[in-house]
Design a protein around this nucleic acid. Sequence first.
DNA 1: CGGTGGACCTGCTGGC
DNA 2: TGCCAGCAGGTCCACC
Length: 273
Amino acid sequence: MPELPEVETVCRSLRPHLLGRTIKRVQILEPRLRVPVDEKSCQSLAGRRVEAIDRRAKYILLQLSGNLVWLFHLGMSGKLICVEPNTARRKHDHIVVDLDDGTELRYHDPRRFGLSLVTRRESLHELAQLSSLGIDPFDADLTGDFLFRFTRRSERRIRDLLLDQQVIAGLGNIYANEILSLTGIKPTTRAHRLTRQQVQAIASAIPRLLKDAIRWCGTSFSDYRDADDKSGEFQNHLRVYDRDGEKCRRCPSLIKRVAIGNRSAYYCPTCQK
DNA sequence: CGGTGGACCTGCTGGC
DNA sequence: TGCCAGCAGGTCCACC
């Protein structure tokens, strides 16, 4: 579900609710996420203050007093939502956090592909999840040259290379497909077949597209929401993703859907070669 | 090593 | 109306 723009939107919407607040109590209603939630470390969070909220790729980091970090990944269907006290619990509310002003922060995740873990700040860089991440999409070092080196030695399809978090950290299936649409490249093209110019175009399209998506607060299909349960708007601006059979926005052709592995790829057969 | 396919889950939609 | 297949924004692991 949530890719970088959605996770960034969640972080921004959490800040007004959480910054400066103190955690009173943490309840784990369902520990069975992708990695089992450690109840003990969560209970040790009572009394900690939220000092900052950061994002790395698709990970959300609540920086807490006492040099602790509470790390979340939303998986496919995870949400962090702030609600008034005494709001009815919903099915799939797995973690409930009581704050000192009465607000409740809830982690809700029907598919339970998400992740919640607590670590000391100095150990953060040792986490496998974070240490294996590739370059940040907004890093000035993400140049055509940089990406060209990866594409030269890879025979994977470019859509899959863009999804690889160890290469670029933060893209998911929506934005990988949209980037290839913006740059006129077919998602099934093998990476090493791309020209220098094509790779340059991809590198420069990535931060532009993500900034645009963040400006529209991300893409909402059925279920992505921010901390105030508000939808994003970028679904209205998608060029190819989830538009198979619909008209291309630049030519009369119809958008096609193909399976790459077991995930869909979308493209315009005329505009993308 | 790199690349691929399946597993992990629940819920929704569309076809019959 | 019900049932079933297929699909969904991500990641990880086994296998070739």
